[in-house]
C-alpha cells in the first residue's frame, strides 16, 4: 500500500476528525486565545504611546517618545506569523491545548475498540498508524495557519498597524518559523499521544500532555543545581522555549536598544551560572533542532509501538 493507499487513509482520517466536534472547537479556542493577547498588546501599545497607561507612582513611561510603528513591530505582516505562533506555543494555554489534542487523537480508537477492528481489516498496520500521525501533523499545521490568518485579518481592524504587505507573509523567515512552530506542535502532540497509547489510557495521556509543562517549568525554575541546569538543556518544554527565543532572534527582548512592546515573552529555561549570577542563554539552534527531531522520532516510534500493542489482547 503506497501512495494511493496513504492518501485514502489520510482522507478517511480527515473526514473522521472533522466530524468530531471537539476537533472543530480546538482551533477556535486557539484563535480566541491568541487574538485576546494580540488585541491586548495592541491596546497596551496605544496606551503607552499616548501616555494614558496607569503606572505606579514615580515609574516613568518606558516607551515615552518611542514611535508607535516601532512599538507595533510585531504586528507587521512580515513579523505577525512569528508573533502569533510563538504566542500560542509559549503560553500555557497553547501548549496545553496541543498536548490535549495529541492525547485525545488516538483515544477514541482505544476507548471504542476500533483499533482492533482496523487490525482485522488491514494486514499492514503501519500505513494506518503513519496515516493517523500525518493527519495529526496536518491538523497541527492547520491550527497554526488558522491562527496566523486570524491574526492577520484582525490587524485589518487595528488602524495603526504598519506594514500590511501580503507578500511579506510569504517571505522565508515567516514561513520558516511557521514550519518550526508546526514541528514543535507535532512533537508535543505526538509525545502526549505516545503516552496515551503506551499506557492505554487517555486519562494518563491527557494528564501528562497538560500537566507536564507546569511540572517541568516548576522543577527547572525551582533551583539551579547542576542536574537542573543539565536537564534544562534537553527537557522538551525547555527545548521549545529556546527555539521560540531563537525565532524571535531577540535574546534581550529589545530592538536596536529601543524597547518594543512584545506580544509575548517567555525567557528560555536554559541558563548558566557566571560569577555567581544566573544568566539565561541559548543553546545553538542545531542542538535545539536535533533535540526536537529526536523527541519527535521517539514520540512517533512510541505511537507506532503503542498502537501495535493495543490491537493485541
Amino acid at each position: 500500500m503506497i501512495g494511493g493507499g496513504f492518501i485514502r487513509i489520510i482522507q478517511a482520517e480527515i473526514s473522521r476528525v472533522l466530524r468530531k466536534p471537539f476537533f472543530c472547537v480546538i482551533p477556535l479556542l486557539s484563535l480566541i486565545y491568541v487574538l485576546y493577547l494580540e488585541i491586548g498588546a495592541y491596546n497596551n501599545a496605544l496606551a503607552f504611546h499616548k501616555g494614558t497607561i496607569e503606572l505606579p507612582t514615580g515609574v516613568p513611561n518606558p516607551f515615552a517618545g518611542v514611535d508607535l510603528s516601532q512599538m507595533l513591530y510585531w504586528f507587521r505582516w512580515e513579523n505577525i506569523t512569528t508573533a502569533a505562533g510563538a504566542t500560542y506555543l509559549a503560553g500555557w494555554v497553547g501548549i496545553i491545548l496541543v498536548g490535549y489534542v495529541g492525547a485525545v487523537w488516538f483515544a477514541d480508537d482505544l476507548r471504542t475498540g476500533v483499533n482492533k477492528q482496523i487490525a482485522v481489516l488491514q494486514k499492514h498496520l503501519m500505513p494506518v498508524v503513519v496515516g493517523k500521525i500525518l493527519t495529526l501533523a496536518l491538523y497541527m499545521a492547520g491550527i497554526l495557519i488558522f491562527i496566523v490568518l486570524g491574526s492577520v485579518l484582525t490587524t485589518l481592524f487595528l488602524s495603526d498597524v504598519p506594514g500590511r504587505e501580503p507578500a511579506a507573509l510569504l517571505r522565508w523567515i515567516p514561513l520558516r518559523n511557521l514550519m518550526l512552530y508546526s514541528i514543535i506542535a507535532v512533537m508535543w502532540a505526538c509525545l502526549a499521544a505516545m503516552i496515551t497509547l503506551l499506557s492505554r489510557s487517555p486519562v494518563i495521556g491527557v494528564a501528562v500532555g497538560v500537566m507536564w509543562p507546569f511540572a517541568e517549568t516548576a522543577i527547572l525554575f525551582s533551583g539551579n543545581s547542576t542536574i537542573q541546569l543539565l536537564i534544562a538543556k534537553i527537557a522538551p518544554i525547555s527545548t521549545i522555549q529556546s527555539i521560540l527565543a531563537f525565532v524571535y532572534d531577540r535574546f534581550s527582548w529589545v530592538i536596536d536598544s529601543a524597547p518594543v512592546i512584545l506580544w509575548t515573552t517567555s525567557p528560555p529555561l536554559t541558563r548558566t551560572i557566571e560569577n555567581g549570577v544566573i544568566q539565561p542563554y541559548l543553546l545553538p539552534i542545531s542542538f535545539l533542532m536535533t533535540a526536537l527531531v529526536i523527541y519527535t522520532f521517539v514520540a512517533v516510534g512510541g505511537i507506532i509501538l503503542g498502537y501495535y500493542v493495543s490491537v493485541r489482547d
Partner: peptide, 24 residues
C-alpha cells in the same frame, strides 16, 4: 465483534466508508 466497535459521532455511511478506506 460481539460488541462491534464504532466511532459514536459518525453516521453509518461515514463509518462504513471509513472502515472501507482502511481496508487492505
Amino acid at each position: 465483534f460481539e460488541d462491534p466497535p464504532f466511532y459514536p459521532y459518525l453516521t453509518a455511511e461515514n463509518q462504513l466508508g471509513y472502515f472501507n478506506a482502511l481496508r487492505e
